[in-house]
Design a protein around this nucleic acid. Sequence first.
DNA 1: CAGTGGTCTAGACCACTGC
DNA 2: CAGTGGTCTAGACCACTGT
Lengths: 234, 234
Amino acid sequence: MLKYEKVAKQIEQYITDNQLSQGDKLPILDELTEQFKVSKSTIIKALDILELRGMIYQVRGSGIFVRQQKRKGYINMAESRGFKESLREFDLTSKVMALKLIKPDSHLMEQLDLEEDDEVYLVKRVRYIEESPFCIEYSYYSKKHVMYLNQEIAEDSIFTYIMNDLKLNIGFSDTFFRISYLNEGEAGHLELKENDPALRVETTYYLHNGQPFNYSILLYHKDQAQFFVPGTHY
Amino acid sequence: MLKYEKVAKQIEQYITDNQLSQGDKLPILDELTEQFKVSKSTIIKALDILELRGMIYQVRGSGIFVRQQKRKGYINMAESRGFKESLREFDLTSKVMALKLIKPDSHLMEQLDLEEDDEVYLVKRVRYIEESPFCIEYSYYSKKHVMYLNQEIAEDSIFTYIMNDLKLNIGFSDTFFRISYLNEGEAGHLELKENDPALRVETTYYLHNGQPFNYSILLYHKDQAQFFVPGTHY
DNA sequence: CAGTGGTCTAGACCACTGC
DNA sequence: CAGTGGTCTAGACCACTGT
């Protein structure tokens, strides 16, 4: 683990340990460099990461302050490890509805940059939060990157498997969202009515080298779809 | 303007001038440092900004590549200057429905960290894209920061006025969104029906020093609400 | 193994805040 | 004007990619 990642994690720990809240001041840069025995630039890089995640803000000439997220149960889109991170205090479970190897249609071929005879895994899951249906997920993994997948992995975290076991390096993602409507089957899974609105979130995930390996469509239950985006204005 | 901002802007210009698209390679770091006559760190900082905005990705050992947004008409939430930036190729107009000085209720007092006798400007606008209703905006500006506002300013860009004329320094923002439903009046403005769904986006904007100065609620037309979030995975 | 990007450092100097 | 964060630099060294 890199120095600035360690430092970021430790500062985060410091905030929770001392139960700091909105507006509370952190030690000044010089103290931080001394405490962590790293150069100023390294501290600054660590702080920049925390700033991007919406955890602190820095005021030139004044200090470094805690920025506390006021609403619980919102998914932080800047944490981008799915919603696991934001909702870790809740009980999350999922049910695998289908897992199969399929031939992609043209839309999928474009999203995942596939050739004529490439195949993809389709994983369809329903996800629950505190036992209530939370969202429906249609997720497509290109077989050329994710060579193997099974029920057991899909019931757990596929991304953890991809990173830890397949040693793939996730780089970035494009997320698009808008309102759409549920069909009959989807409504059933979410315990809603046909044509009820849902928040439709489409994401393409890329490896660090720019190759797309996953495309997924998530349909969130209209009452559970709550997102947070921390903005930083350059 | 800072060096790394200039460099970022110039690299952006380079990409559009040369009509580079997804996966195209930019000059290597050494060439960039030479071309712009700045140090390696400054180039890296400029590239990091472009990466955050979803414009490029960097691959260690290989190069710097263009990452092109594929969908038009989506609002990029990482650009955070409202939607002006993302939708600049469209004709955007707005109609001011109300502008008045009011006493905040308790929810607003909390959002904007107000005292007993502070006042706020309420600006209610309907915004149009290519002449179609796009969203309804209820925006509250704390008078202690935004001391004066009028119809003319509200018809133009209030944020531009705040930055350029009032010289206020915008720092960061908290954005929350979820699905909600339109009441009769709102539906009328958006040319929809009562109880139609809408994407409800609530944002609190803070000055660089952490003081909140604006709280706004935007209700997007269900067919026009299209957002993009570029993810970068640390 | 050559090419290329990333980390980390020490230090000079700048810009803003708040007393 | 003292305190504090931000910019920028030159350079050493590390880690990954692709031929």
